[in-house]
Every structure is written in C-alpha cells, then in structure tokens.
Design a binder for these strands. Structure first.
Lengths: 341, 341
DNA sequence: CTGAAAGCGCTTACAG
DNA sequence: CTGAAAGCGCTTACAG
C-alpha cells in the first residue's frame, strides 16, 4: 500500500556517495568532510530518509534503550522516580520504555521474559521486588541478558546492584516522632509482608518501639499499600477495644485510605488519633489533614538507578557494585500528628 | 566479556537440522513434524537459546510492539487507561512500551520522533493532545511511519482515528446537577485553554448554563489540570467579592487542590460551596468530602484505542475510521455538592 | 516436511 | 577521507 521504504542506499545514490559514507555522515559527522556531510544531509532530507532502528540494533548488537519494570503505574509514588530515570537516561543518550508489571497480562515469567532481552534493552531497571522468582533465577542468563539494577525494591538480595531508600531509618523517624509526642500505644499498618519494603519498615518501627520500651505490643494490621487496604485497616481499627492513639502506615496511600474512613466514622485525625505515612506523594500535603510522612528522594533514586545501570552496561562497575546504595529519608511534619492530650 | 551469543545456527547444529527448520519449529510449530519439533525445542533448551528480536524485526519489518505516548505519568488519571491498553495489546500479542511525553527530555519533536519509527513500534497510541505540531505534521510520513491513534485527547482533528470521552456532555451533566441543586452563581476552573479537553468542557459548561439562563457570567479561572493550579484557583476564589456558590473544576486533581485550600481557609465544602470534578480518579471517593464528579470509562478508552490501532495496522480500517469514537460519561454524586440553602 | 540461499538495512574493519 | 564487502541473526519464498 505504501511507497517503497527509503534506505541508506537511496540516500547514497542521491548524494552520489557510498552507503558507508552516508552511515558515517549521519552517525559520526566529524569523520567526513564538510562538503560530503552537507550533501548527505541534504540527500537525507529530500529523500525523507528515516533510520531503521532494527537494522542498526542488529548490527551494533545493542538497542539504545533501557526498559523499566514498574509494579503499579496507578501508584503516584512512582512518577517522580520515573522523571529521575528519564532525565538521567537522556543524558546517556538512551530511550526509556516502561513496562507495567502489575498488569494481569504481565503476571508471569513468560510475559516478562520477552522484555528482558538484549534485543529490546541495553539494560533494565526493576522497581518491582515481587517479580516471579523464576524470571531472574532461570530466565536471566548473566552475560547474555542485559544488566539489571533494582530501584526502591529489591529481591534476590545482593545479586544485582540496587538503590533504595533507608526504609528502617524512615520507620524509626516516624515512630520516634510519635513517641516524642507522648504516644504510648502506637499501631502499625504494614504493607504486604512478602514485600521487602514492608518487612524493613516493620523492623525499623519495632526496633524504635523497643528502644523506648513504649507500651507494646501495639496493634498491627497487614495491608497491601493500596488505598482500599488502608480503609480496611480503619474498619478493623474501629472495632478495637482500646484504640492506639497513633498509627504509622507504611505508605501514604494507605494512610489516606485509613484517615478517610476514620473521619467518615467521626474519628478525628489528629485529635483522636495521629497518623504518619511513608513516601510523601503529592497529595500528602493536600489531604485534609495534611499528612505527616517520611519523604523519599525519588528523582534521586531514579537517577542513581540509571547511573548504576550505565556502569554495568559499560563494564566499569565497581568491585562492590552489588552493595546496595542507600539514600537518606526525612520526616515531614504536617497536620495529621499531634501531641497526646 | 561474555560467552558467544547463541543463535539459531547453534540450535540447528545441535538438533541436526537446518536453520530454516529451527525457525519454523519455533514460530510455527505445526509446520514441522512432531519429532523434529521436539528435538528442536530440546536443542533450544539445552543451548539456552534466546531469540534476537532485532534480527526478527529487521527481517519481518515489524517490531511486535506498540508504544504509548503519555503526557503525565504522575496524573493518576492515566493508569486505568493503560490497564485497558495493556489488556487489549496482550490479546493482540503485542508488547507495550510507555513513553513519558511530559518529561523535559521529551519536550521537543526531535526527541519524540525517534520513538515514532516503525522500527520501534508497529503502531503508536497518543494520549497527549499537546505534542509539538511539528512532530505529526512534518516528521510523520504516512505509509512509512507506523499508524497513529489518539486516545482521550486529540490534536489535528480528524487526521487520525481517535477515541475520546464525551467531554461536552460530561460538563453539561456537572452543570445541570449544580443547577438542579438550586445554584445560580456557578464558577468554572478550566484546564489550560490550549488543550482540547479544556475547551470542550468549557463549551459544554457554557452551553448548559446558557440553556438555563442561570446567573451568568460566572467566575472563570484557568488552571492546568494540576493540583497546584487548583489551589491557586482557590486563592483567587477567596478574594472574590461575591463568591460563586458552586464551582465546576475540569479535573479531579484541580478539584482536590481547590477544596483543600478552601477548607484550609475555613470555607466549607459543600456547606459554603459545592464542587464538582471531572475524571473520577481513585482518590475522588476518599477525599473528605468525597468528590462529586464525572466518571470516564478509562479501561474501555484504552481498549478501544488498541482496537482502532489494530485495524489501522492490519489495514482493515473502516472508511470512516477517522471519525472520533465517543464514549459515554456518568455523573457520580458524592458529598462535595449540596442543595443551596 | 525440509534445506539452501537470499535478503531485511545498517555499520565497520580493511584497503586505498 | 572514502568505497567495496562482509556480516549482525533472523524468516521466507523457492525447490525438492
């Protein structure tokens, strides 16, 4: 149906040079004389030439792209990380493609394995620590599969380079803040317990509580980082005989679901209960009450992931390349927490 | 640095057949005898063979992928559309790659043009109606560039197939609801006026107001769909001498920023002012007060986009393929609107 | 059903 | 600085 596709050959004929020269003029302009460069560029222009990536990729044995596995695009937590990734990728002259691993279509190793191929990606960044084990254990063949780097989450510990936030310290900051406010009965809504983030934050929280010999054991409830699970936690909280006066939620999204349901049921935040989240997503400062939370440096997380990946791609990774890079966190105090009265 | 890459040739040698047979056994199993199929599969297994996509793409002149241009991944509005796209793409055996057009790295035609190549994508879905004009006008060459379909937004009208929500009707439903509640002084926070969504919704709102000969002209304020612009609108609203008793915001995100700032300043929603949003994002029902809004069928939007695209790819598009497909909307009444007292 | 061979569109030593 | 030629790893008519 369409006119014949224009190749480097057509450009060469038009410009009266060889295909080799066209290739050079286009990809390494300095390697040809200004005159030939000019005529090639003009020829490319007037023939409407567009490079065929597949051919180049095949020949160069690389794709010029990095793919990112994202667990849940609906979670606003990821968007800033992606900005960081894109900025850094652009600096390294790589395209970035996102793959939604949370999608039911991508729920198995087979579906994802196709993306984990050097013909698609020069490297892959995985933001999802809960990929099917099979994928990285059996499908991934070192040396032929593209380099992998984990961001935020991580899964086979220390098998790949990774950047992450200091989750334990974040949890500690949250609990310390609550204790400093005089709270003695502190609850914790965790993420899914098979997730590293959840267990790290739980460990951090428990350690902080233990350190103060606060009034433990407190109420604990397992969520899944979703808003819905936050509201379920609230439902359970409401049935408690003695309700904690403060609750640390392992994600902002859950904290919002939690507060929302509480307020709906006449429980005031922070008058009746203080709430702390984790992540500092955009809505956190806009929810009423504005959410006290743990801020993660998300752009930086994304950039670091790309840097680690580029090192792996270029083969100049440090000896301890697999030692996790841990980024600092900050407590952001807003209106959802208050000293006990 | 790594062991030699394993090709179809190695598999062929291992299985004692030709490369042609390996190729057939792998991609069209029914075209070889069960015996050869078995031995080829085993050979592939034990050699650890992995197909080289670039080579296949080059040979087949297609990529097996569709790429999606997303304007702003941080806007939760898009996640459900993407689910719909991914589900439909999987049914059509296509991979999907996302490209963030909002990223500063992708702000120009050059950066995006590289993705708009048949070597990357068999087709592209554009969810961003505000792409640089140059891209689709000059860089896009019909017949050689991959088919394009617009979802949600659209830009050169009727030049490409598109699916969209009935924006005008959505706005009308919002206004009619407010009028039905007795409001006579109704304000409108629009999206950016260079955006089709904004102008459509504005037109729908104005038409509905005019039809009722309600107390026009009402206050109008231009935002950019972001939460921050919603709070700015609120700041402006607060300075008004006679404040509208109801405000229709062209997106939920703006509505939330708007309400948040109002409440912070002691203005009650819905007691002092009713607010209606547009989109029905996840947080809408959880914000306090829960937001009355216009629901869009986002999964369906995504699926329809893929269907249109597949028609274009397979060359069986209808004659009126470029006539926009318009999806219905629904008014969801929650707690942010109330009859005037 | 299977094999030999051509070719997809590039890039890059190798000569000159 | 430029050209002729090989080759990246597949798939697919064309014979048999």
């Amino acid at each position: 149906m369409s006119r014949k596709t224009i190749t480097i050959k057509d450009v060469a004929r038009f410009a009266g040079v060889s295909t080799a020269t066209v290739s050079r003029a286009l990809s390494r302009p300095s390697s040809v004389t200004p005159a030939t460069r000019k005529s090639v560029l003009e020829a490319a222009q007037s023939t409407g030439y567009q490079m065929n990536q597949a051919a180049r990729n095949l020949r160069k044995q690389q794709s010029g792209a990095i793919v990112v596995f994202v667990p849940d695009l609906s979670n606003p937590f990821f968007s800033h990380i992606l900005s960081g990734i894109e900025a850094a990728a652009a600096r390294n002259d790589k395209s970035v493609f996102l793959v939604n691993t949370y999608s039911p279509q991508n729920d198995n190793a087979d579906a994802l394995a196709r993306y984990l191929s050097s013909s698609w990606a020069d490297g892959v960044i995985i933001l999802d620590g809960s990929l099917p084990k099979d994928l990285l254990q059996n499908r991934y063949v070192p040396g032929v599969s593209p380099p992998v780097v984990f961001g935020c989450e991580w899964s086979p510990p220390d098998k790949f380079p990774s950047v992450r936030t200091d989750n334990r310290r974040g949890a500690k900051l949250a609990i310390d803040h609550l204790i400093g406010l005089g709270h003695k009965n502190i609850g914790h809504v965790t993420g899914p317990l098979w997730n590293v983030l959840s267990t790290e934050r739980l460990a951090g929280a428990n350690a902080a509580l233990a350190a103060h010999a606060a009034g433990l054991p407190a109420w604990q409830c397992e969520g899944d980082f979703s808003m819905a699970s936050g509201t379920q936690a609230a439902t359970q909280y409401l049935t408690l005989d003695t309700r904690p006066t403060a609750v640390f939620c392992a994600s902002d999204t859950m904290a919002i679901g939690f507060m929302s349901e509480l307020i709906k049921n006449g429980v005031s935040v922070p008058d009746d209960v203080s709430v702390v989240g984790f992540d500092d997503i955009d809505i956190a400062e806009r929810f009423i009450p504005a959410l006290t939370t743990i801020h993660q440096h998300r752009e930086h997380l994304g950039e670091s992931a790309v840097n680690l990946l580029m090192n792996a791609i270029n083969g100049n990774a440090a000896d301890d390349a697999n030692a996790p890079l841990v980024l600092p966190v900050e407590l952001i105090i807003r209106d959802s927490t208050k000293a006990i009265s």
